[in-house]
Each structure stands twice: as structure tokens, then as C-alpha cells.
Amino acid sequence: MSSNVTRRLVLRGTAVAVAGAALAAPTAMAATRTATAAMTDHSGHGGHSGPAAFDEVYQGRRIVGKPATGEHAAHGGFTASIDGKELHLMQNADGTWISVVNHYETFATPLAVTRAAVDKLRGATLVPIAT
């Protein structure tokens, strides 16, 4: 039995698939940028910019987060602590946050990354990094 599939037909199908993916990529990237901007836009929260400060007890640990002052403020930073020990936070270019405890997992807010650090520590004491 002979197959009706020719090399030309396969190449044409491949070209159509590649063209479709090339046309869809900018739309997907724009949607991602819009979603990221919506997550990081805090302009409607009383006119301030940046993430909201927090001070709470989470799983028996006191977590505090606030806009950075001093040398960290020059970088638009945000500081967080667990039981009074500093948790080093970093904001990625896409607006997500990571910490030294959860370095390979991103979070939408400093509060979320701080809570995740408490989960990951499982009761261990946070040892601040030397700078």
C-alpha cells in the first residue's frame, strides 16, 4: 500500500506550524507582561509604590517585612526578617521575589517568599548571610 504523504507535504506542514508558533509567541509574551505588571502594580494602594509592609506571626514565627532604609534603600529594596533575623530578599527583573532560602523558586510578593522560607526552615533558626 502506498502512502500519499510526500516530502513536500511534510515540509509545508512544518512551515505552517513554525509560522503559527512565531505569530503566537509575541501575543503570549505580551500577555505575560500584562499579568506581571498587574501583579507588581501597587499604584492603587494609597499612592505608594512597592510591596506592602507586613508584621505577623506565621506558623509560630514572627515575620516582618518593610521597605528598606539605609544602604538597601538605594536599590529600591525591601527587608524581611524571621524572628528578628534578616532574610535576604531579591527582586527579579520580572517583579517576582526570591530569598536565600528559596533561591530557585519565585514568589509574587515579599510576604509570600517570607512565608515560604518559614515553611522551608521547618523550625530551624535562620542564620543571616554575611555581607
Rank of each mutant, 00 (worst) to 15 (best):
Q59I: 00
L9N: 03
L11K: 07
T96I: 02
P110S: 06
R33W: 06
P51L: 02
G46P: 10
V127Q: 14
T109P: 07
T69A: 09
P26S: 06
T114Y: 08
N102T: 10
E71A: 14
V10S: 10
G95C: 08
R62A: 08
R12N: 09
A25L: 15
V16S: 12
K85L: 09
R12H: 09
V127R: 13
V5G: 00
V57I: 15
H88S: 13
L9P: 00
T114P: 05
P26I: 04
T79H: 04
T27E: 05
A22M: 15
H103E: 11
I129K: 11
G13D: 14
Y104C: 00
K85H: 15
L126Q: 05
A28F: 14
L11M: 13
G46S: 07
D94L: 10
W97A: 03
A31Q: 13
S99H: 09
I98L: 10
R115N: 06
A117L: 03
A130E: 15
W97I: 05
F107R: 04
G95H: 06
M39L: 15
A74R: 14
D83G: 02
S99P: 06
I63K: 04
A52C: 05
K85C: 01
V64A: 02
R115F: 10
L89T: 04
T79I: 12
A53I: 01
G76N: 08
E105F: 01
T125Q: 13
T6M: 01
H42V: 02
V118D: 07
F54A: 05
A80Y: 06
A112N: 09
A21C: 13
K85P: 00
A74F: 10
A35Y: 09
L111P: 03
V127N: 11
A116G: 11
Q91W: 02
T40F: 00
A19H: 04
A116H: 03
R33T: 09
G44Y: 03
A74I: 03
T6K: 04
G84A: 05
G76K: 05
T79N: 13
A52Q: 14
K85F: 09
G50A: 03
R62F: 04
T34I: 10
T69P: 00
T36V: 05
S99N: 14
R122C: 05
R122L: 07
V5M: 11
P67T: 12
T14C: 12
L89Y: 07
T114F: 12
